[in-house]
């Protein structure tokens, strides 16, 4: 017991990195899906406009 080194800083860093990385990934998934949904909306409205302008 007496020679157990104090490595809690490393432990805290490790868990911090884990949560931050997973958090960033989830946020990136969310942002990407938002962007894609917006793209779909604009594209669908463009598609609706197109036949009218052609006729």
């Amino acid at each position: 017991m007496e020679n157990t080194p104090d490595t809690s800083t490393y432990m805290i860093a490790g868990f911090a990195v884990s949560f931050i990385t997973m958090g960033i990934y989830i946020v990136s998934l969310y942002i990407r899906s938002l962007n894609l949904k917006r793209d779909i909306e604009t594209l669908e409205s463009m598609q609706d406009e197109k036949p009218k302008s052609q006729k």
């Binding site: 017991m1 157990t4 080194p5 104090d6 490595t7 809690s8 490393y10 432990m11 490790g14 868990f15 884990s18």
Partner: peptide
């Protein structure tokens, strides 16, 4: 899992607290 790794599992004697990272390390 975080609770188990941080508080439930005993501290490893040779490496100390940092060994708790091991559970996430293996999981990932």
């Amino acid at each position: 899992s975080t609770y188990l790794a941080l508080f439930f599992a005993p501290t490893e004697l040779v490496m100390g607290q940092v060994q708790r990272v091991f559970y996430f390390h293996i999981g990932t």
